[in-house]
């Protein structure tokens, strides 16, 4: 609750430079988290189809993006 309030306050009053940098940073972080999570799932024997369902994308999309990692 407090966290949400703080987040909203911060987002509303923040310096745009901070806000935009934070968004760009999250986007990069997201790519790494996705790669790490997909790798983990594959190592645990998850099929591409099940990973795709959890990520909310098609099997082809997740396979194309992550098959090499």
């Amino acid at each position: 609750m407090t966290d949400t309030t703080e987040l909203v306050t911060a987002a509303a009053g923040a310096d745009p430079a901070d806000g935009l940098r934070a968004v760009a940073a999250l986007r990069r972080l997201l790519e790494h988290l996705e790669a790490a999570q997909v790798r983990n799932a594959r190592e645990q024997g998850w099929p591409w189809q099940r990973i795709a369902v959890e990520l909310g994308v098609t099997r082809q999309a997740v396979h194309k993006k992550h098959r090499r990692s």
Partner: peptide, 8 residues
């Protein structure tokens, strides 16, 4: 630091 200031 930018993320922290955004409360993240």
């Amino acid at each position: 630091a930018a993320l922290r200031r955004m409360g993240i």
